[in-house]
Structures are given as structure tokens and as C-alpha cells.
Design a binder for these strands. Structure first.
Lengths: 245, 245
DNA sequence: AGCGGTCGTCAACATAGATTGACGCGCAAG
DNA sequence: CTTGCGCGTCAATCTATGTTGACGACCGCT
């Protein structure tokens, strides 16, 4: 590792199971190399030949897809400690684009590195399998939001999800987060236009549900927001009871 | 196995890699038990305590989530040979509901059965990992459709996806499929009302894009439909080049 | 200090899709 | 043979969100 700080990935995963030395060293080997990106820089694009996955080390990133006519859908926001590229791993060419939401740093590692884990650490294998499927559950939550919620509910869901995710590695976090994405990006994540995002956020603010100050966002009435969207936290607890020992 | 026919799961997976005897027997052990369901019967519900996954043996099923006020989102249609429950595996309680779209049969197996695979078959492990992530990629495609496509495009995407999936195990399939879901269910899968589904399908039929006869559906102009939605087949080919040997 | 870009906001207008209610066909149950 | 229900369809009306265009605040650069 090139950083003195404990790996974000190890920190995030050890929230769920105890990692032995072999597991920790295997995970550390995923972060041997690193590369910095500046705000809005592309990491990779749809149809790139893709042999790598990435670990987020610093900064927010997001994955998205474009349509030929310019319509864009942001799929998922990625935070430090997240693994980037699971949806693309099954294919020779990437299915989505990755971009830096702000200045940050990624650690690329070849798909093949997973082999060593699959062969030697059944327990870590199970955890990676779980992380991929947890991501699936989260994308499904987003799908539910896009299919059946109105604009206000989608925004509530989006903010709640981000907050729940950030709390895993920030135990002492309150109901306030830094929000480095602009309203155009938020709209692309929720299937709305930036004008309507602006209008709806403003209404939510007037209703006392949230408040803003510069680039920070506060969930003033988190419980009410949760009730609005029937929110489930997919991050704080996972079922690892069936793991091999 | 209680059936004389080769397992659907083995058939589907061996489309991607060669399965050795150990792998085949491990997969077969997932289908030791079976249970039949009649059309519209629930398999499991959100908040059920869930220790099982399922292999679809016969018939179409689908997963969905409900909102407290009755809005419903169908997440994914499940065909013979598919594994049911990946998005729920990470949690103690189910995150979605499963229901039979028509009369069919499922094989339940406990999550723990994956342990034996993780411990003894790195190659099969990699394949299961791939299948879960392929499903992620497919849900992301659906998300893109829901976020950024209009009604006609969503329907085109939905029909193309189903057709591509069914072709894996039916090599000689043409552009015609049996469609056992009604328009209300199709609407719930695409975030539309059944009235609007009716109207839009009718328009597509008039435009010569598709045609219907009873419960069968034909993609009369498959290429044009693919161009409309920038369609990618996620089923015919996967990248297994990085698998352990 | 001036300047061009990004970003949020607002208002006027346009429209895709929802809602509601009605009708008819086919089919299974009595 | 009737009855009732699931299902597809159609039309009238309503509404949430998109579209376009404009303006002002802020911020880094010259």
C-alpha cells in the first residue's frame, strides 16, 4: 500500500465480518496501484475493453450510461471503500461509464486478482459475493424509486440512501452530508430534469424536510422522509450467518 | 434429481463454461427438492425470514416490491434455469416478493449450499459470481429504461430482453415468444398503467413493429426495435477468460 | 476590476402518461 | 344456459413533469 492510512476497503468490509491476516493482505493487494482523477474526468467508457476493477480510495465517483441521443442515466454513486465495476465484470467490454464526481483517487486491479481470493479464502469469497448482491438490492431499490415514485419521493430516497451509506464508515455522522453533485447530476440519477430538481428541492426545503447551506445538506426530518418512501437501510446490517468458517 | 431430464440450471450454465463432474453434481444437489406453484401464487414475501434460494425448473416467475399504498414494481422476470433470490441473499429478511406468473415449479436450496461450492470449486464460484453480476447489469439496463425511455421504448426493451434470454436455451427460437404475463403485469414491470400499455402496444402493432396472436408475440422488426433502444444482448456471450483453471 | 463560465432559480407553455369509467369478448363455474 | 370475472380496449379529462428561455449569484481567470 502506498498510503499509511488503513485501506478504505478493509475498513468497510471489516464492518461486516472479522478479516484474518490472509484476507487483509489479499485485500491490500487490490490497492497496490493508484491513480488520481479530477472532477468530471472519465475513468472508463462504455465499449472500452475492460480487464480491471477499481477500489475507490478518495472522492465520490459515479457510474452512468448514455443513450445515442444524449439522454443520460446515472446508475450509482460510488464512495471511498466501494468496489467499482461489478456490473461490467461479466463482459469483455464495459457496459457503463465511470466518472469522477469530484477530485479523487482510484486503485485499479485486474479481474484475475479475484481468482486468488476464490481459491484460498472461501470466507472472503462469500463476502465479495454478498457485496455484489447487496449492490444488486440497492439498484433494485433505485429501480423501484424510478418506476413508482414521484419527484419528491425520489429525492427523499436518494438523500436517505447516500446518508445511510456514508454512516457505515462515519459512525459519528449526524444527519448532515456534504453533497458534491450538482442538480443536473442529481436529475440524471433520478430521471428528472435539473429544473424540476431545483423546484422540488426548494419545495422540500420550504416544507422543512431538508435544509441546505452551501454544499451541505441536512435531513431535517429524517423519519418523515423514511416514512414517505418506505425506506430500508441496506448498509448497516447484512446476513453473514451462512458463511463458511 | 427427481426429473429424468437434464437440469435446466446445468443446461443454462454449461452454455458459458464446460462443467466438470464435481460441478455438475454440486449443481444437481441444488435441485434435490422441488415444489409446484400455480399461477399468481406467492413464493415468498418481503420481510419473510429467508434462508433459501431457488432454481426455476418450470414456468415463468417474477420478483416485485410493493409500496404501502399499493403501488407495485415488478423487478425481474425469471425463467427456467434461473437462480432466484440473489438480491435477498445479503439480508436476513427478504427484500422483494416472488410470485408465479403461470403454473410452474421451483427447487429450493439453503444459502449454505453455496459454501460447499465456494470451498471446493473456484471455477464454479467464479461462474456464480458472474451470474449475479450479469443480473446486476440487466437490472441496470432496466433502470436506464425506466429513467430515460418513453413508453414505446420501454416496451421494445422489455420484449427484446425477454427474447434474448429465452434464446440461450432455445437455439432454434425465432422472433416469436409466448407471453404469459398480462398487460397489468407488463405495466408494473415498466412503470406504466395497464391502459397505457394497451394503447402503446396497439400503436406498435399498427406501426408494424410487433404482432400478436393469442398469447404469442412476434418481433416483426427486431432490428428496428434494437436501434430504438440501443439494445445490448447480455446473455449470448460472457467474458470467462479470467476464470481460475 | 472586469469577464465568461457554472450553477441555481423562476415562469410560461407543452405534453406524455395517469385516472376514471365504460364496454365487450371469452371462458370457467354454477 | 346463464352468470360473473379477467382481460383488453377506448375516450374524456387531469396533472406531473418536461422544455425553453431568461436572469442573477458566485467564482476562478485575465
Amino acid at each position: 500500500m502506498t498510503s499509511d492510512k488503513k485501506s478504505c476497503l478493509v475498513e468497510k468490509l471489516s464492518h461486516y465480518i472479522e478479516l484474518d491476516e490472509l484476507a487483509e493482505s489479499q485485500l491490500a493487494s487490490l490497492e497496490e496501484h493508484e491513480r488520481t482523477y479530477h472532477r468530471h474526468q472519465e475513468v472508463y467508457s462504455e465499449t472500452d475493453e475492460l480487464k480491471y476493477l477499481y477500489v475507490v480510495k478518495r472522492g465520490w465517483f459515479y457510474s452512468y450510461t448514455d443513450m445515442p441521443d444524449g439522454r443520460r442515466q446515472i446508475i450509482r454513486v460510488l464512495h471511498p471503500g466501494d468496489i467499482v465495476g461489478f456490473p461490467d465484470i461479466a463482459f469483455e467490454y464495459a457496459t457503463s461509464n465511470i466518472r469522477a464526481a469530484e477530485d479523487g483517487c482510484l486503485c485499479p486491479f485486474p479481474k484475475q486478482k479475484l481468482d486468488a481470493i476464490f481459491e484460498k479464502s472461501p470466507r472472503l469469497t462469500a463476502l465479495l459475493f454478498l457485496m455484489a448482491n447487496r449492490e444488486l438490492a440497492c439498484v433494485i431499490d433505485t429501480l423501484r424509486a424510478m418506476g413508482r415514485m414521484d419527484a419528491r419521493e425520489r429525492l427523499a430516497y436518494f438523500f436517505l440512501d447516500l446518508t445511510a451509506r456514508l454512516r457505515i464508515t462515519n459512525k459519528d455522522m449526524t444527519d448532515t452530508i456534504r453533497m458534491p453533485m450538482n442538480q443536473h447530476e442529481i436529475g440524471d440519477a433520478l430521471g428528472l430534469t435539473h429544473t424540476y430538481v431545483s423546484k422540488t428541492i426548494r419545495e422540500m426545503e420550504n416544507a422543512g424536510l431538508i435544509s441546505r447551506k452551501g454544499a451541505t445538506l441536512t435531513l431535517a426530518q429524517e423519519t418523515r422522509l423514511e416514512d414517505m418512501v418506505d425506506f430500508s437501510d441496506r448498509y448497516s446490517r447484512l446476513d453473514t450467518s451462512w458463511f463458511p468458517s
